[in-house]
Design a binder for these strands. Structure first.
Lengths: 194, 194
DNA sequence: CGCCTAATATATCTGTTAGATATCTCTGAC
DNA sequence: GTCAGAGATATCTAACAGATATATTAGGCG
């Protein structure tokens, strides 16, 4: 129940903003919640069917022949409120960058530095995006009662990116103190370098 | 291949530190890599069997009758180096806290504040743990060539926690500016509060 | 004016994965 | 010597992501 109900939450949440087809729902989740959430088709369709059976959403004629638009019902709204109040089910951590750095001695100093520089650049890019997004939203949605909540999620992304940047700098400094170990470098240990 | 090979990486990496049974491997991954990685039994056993067939690990008599201890082979070490160099496969984001806050207007101001306070307390607790861990490791493993790499992963956890704390404070300040909307509070809107 | 092509939309399908569970082994107490 | 309980081992199931198969529309071209 733990993980499935979080998909339910995202689906009902999306439909609570406006009625949509399953396809549009996926797009909306990717575009709007994308920075902190994701759902796949294989998840959305069965969830939608289950919610229909439980009466939490209603299926309407869609924009194309044979397609369906889903509308949230009153019981669906109640269910959403219920789900939002449930304890958070943390998803297991899987940070590929840290996994590689942990075995950094095997990977080699040079590649570790490359990974860190890349991670820092990514973080700087997304920090800029978050700042942009916050400014755009503040202007466009000014006065909307949802705005402060949306801004909170954007701000979380920004703080996360700042954390990565600060960490990467620290880690790069630590790396600088390690003598380049030729035996663990790439296959070609050019012995020409002094 | 993307995600499976990351399990392979973690398994080979664990065995590269010392030979272990599957059970011990799981424990080691949870205790040592736990802050940024996780693997389940359902993952470890099939991976170990596959690695054995490919000759990357060897099965030895285990500590109990019928159990097996796995030892990494030379080809396994080579394979690990190869896997560590592969591009990082990002796992899809799923942040239950942000999902709830995004729909904060439906959830209600009060519960949002509770969630934020809880997240902040968690982050403060783990920040203290990371600091402790860094100090303990620096003392116990002093001079180990792996130490700087391990410290990098610990530091990542610390910076992440600091980011969460800073963010939570900011978000709480934003929340404070929102009038408590009784209609979206819990079922009991005690009208006694002025 | 009708056909063909490509883009978009829709739904299902498959292999991967997490976590729970069933079984077995050992240790220590009575 | 036997029993209980903790710990260890392996498998099993349902959730899941991403890829893929199918259908529908719109727009260009004959």
């Amino acid at each position: 129940m733990a993980r499935r109900s979080q998909t339910e939450t995202a689906v009902l949440g999306g439909l609570s903003m406006q009625p949509m087809t399953a396809y549009a729902l996926r797009e909306a989740i990717r575009d709007v919640l994308g920075h902190f959430w994701s759902e796949s088709f294989g998840q959305i369709y069965p969830t939608l069917n289950a919610l229909e059976q439980q009466g939490h959403v209603e299926r309407r004629e869609g924009p194309r022949s044979g397609s369906s638009t889903f509308v949230i019902t009153a019981s669906g709204t109640a269910r959403l409120r219920e789900l939002l109040s449930e304890p958070i089910a943390a998803s297991p951590p899987r940070n590929g960058l840290l996994l590689r750095l942990f075995f950094g001695r095997t990977l080699g100093v040079r590649k570790c530095r490359e990974l860190l520089l890349e991670a820092k650049a990514d973080a700087e890019r997304s920090l800029a995006e978050y700042d942009d997004l916050a400014r755009t939203l503040s202007a466009e949605e000014e006065g909307s009662p949802d705005l402060p909540y949306v801004l909170m999620t954007v701000s979380a992304g920004g703080h996360g990116a700042e954390g990565v940047i600060a960490w990467a700098d620290e880690a790069l400094a630590m790396l600088a103190g390690i003598p380049a170990d030729d035996s663990t470098n790439d296959a070609t240990p050019t012995d020409g370098e002094s």
